[in-house]
Write a protein that binds this DNA or RNA. Structure first.
Lengths: 237, 237
DNA sequence: TAGTGGTCTAGACCACTAA
DNA sequence: TAGTGGTCTAGACCACTAC
């Protein structure tokens, strides 16, 4: 809502996604955009840099900003989005089942993952994500009580991120992610519809606030045949 | 080599990676860095933005730029690096075996992947990547002949990217990537040491030049137990 | 040659943090 | 209050592209 360059980014993006600007064509030049939005060139450039970073345009020196036709991310590992935000793009084909919500004293592994002492308590949240009536993802969340003192069933069924950001006024900023493939555990087999497959894709998330404090460790365990993510990568720095 | 902000980025990065600046401490303020490098604030900010984007620092308003202790990427899906560049960080524990190098007429799938007509020929390169004497990754590359006219055994054994960028003077710019888990094919079982596992992690790459022309399609097929990547993700735009 | 994006500068005002 | 990073402006010169 605040910065001009973000508003302009969003406006151009909506025109690209809405098909108003077709892929393969060039955006108006930076000087034209300056006039159009009545801002300085630096502000326009920030907007275009965002579009380029996220894979919507490619800037070509001497020519202009070419609109790309890369499709949107299905499971964005490189972004940091909540399941609720993801689900909203999937037309209600998803459902969440809350299996467990309790305040626990952390074991050694969780203490290490969250970098806390044994005096600090931790919220443990286990949720199953159903897609088209099949249990596809097992989400195991561990959240530091000192940062999120209260957690209710309703919050867990809706969106923990939304609560943390809007309810508590904290800013979720960045995460370290790790993706591996492992043999399924008994817990996986108990909660997921694994069919014949005996492996799961494990996405580990260490999530930090904007003051660089670690507040959440999450493990998302996916049925492999339903796991897929598309990413956009740039070469160089 | 050219831009000041990239030199400054590299200099600060080497100090962080070399331990000269420890994680958990703050970088000098932007105004101090301005004086130190004798550049404008905008230039310093570009350097710091790069460090933040790549997960080395977190900027905290009113405080400063905090150095993070996130370890380096193992298998960077979100970056766009060649296997040779990756291997250089692994102390020669890796080896490449060239299985196939030929110029073919594309089948329907390849025509679609590379978005070309059947008149254009395509280089097909099949390579096995050994890590610690085990055959872990099967790389299948398809490269448009019109862009890369010559391809030799030596180039494929060394680095195709290096040849394209330095030999041909082209600039590899961005890629669309897709990661899935699939059942192993006969070809996978033939070329890889799959042990008991019957699945592979498939990383598909559509690689573009800086003029937004698609020139390469690559499929990297990994043994699942050896597949792992760590990524850094920021929330927001 | 004219137009494009890439880089750099100098200065301004703001919001946030800490003492 | 002083210092920090966040945003925005106006102007400059460069390298590249197209004609």
């Amino acid at each position: 809502m605040h910065a001009k360059y973000i508003s302009i980014y969003k406006e151009i993006l909506s025109k690209i996604e809405g098909g108003e600007i077709s892929s393969g064509t060039f955006l108006p030049s930076e000087s034209e955009l300056m006039k159009k939005y009545d801002v300085s060139r630096d502000t326009i450039r920030k907007s275009l840099d965002l579009l380029a970073k996220n894979g919507f345009i490619e800037k070509v020196k001497g020519k202009g900003s070419l609109v790309l036709d890369i499709h949107k991310l299905d499971f964005p590992v490189s972004n940091l989005v909540s399941f609720k935000e993801l689900a909203e793009k999937m037309d209600n084909r998803v459902q969440t089942i809350l299996v467990d919500l309790e305040l626990i004293s952390p074991d050694k592994q969780i203490m290490k993952d969250l970098n806390i002492s044994k005096e600090e308590n931790v919220w443990k949240v286990i949720r199953i994500r159903e897609i088209d009536k099949e249990k596809i993802i097992l989400d195991k969340d561990y959240i530091v009580e000192g940062i999120v003192p209260d957690l209710t069933k309703d919050i867990c069924m809706d969106s923990i991120y939304e609560y943390v950001e809007e309810g508590l006024g904290l800013q979720i900023s960045f995460a370290k992610k790790e993706v591996t493939v492992q043999n399924a555990t008994k817990e996986d087999r108990k909660y997921l519809d694994l069919d014949d497959s005996d492996m799961v894709v494990v996405v580990k998330n260490y999530v930090y606030l904007s003051n660089a404090i670690l507040f959440q460790y999450t493990e998302s365990r996916h049925r492999p045949d339903k796991f897929r993510f598309v990413d956009f990568a740039r070469r160089g720095y």
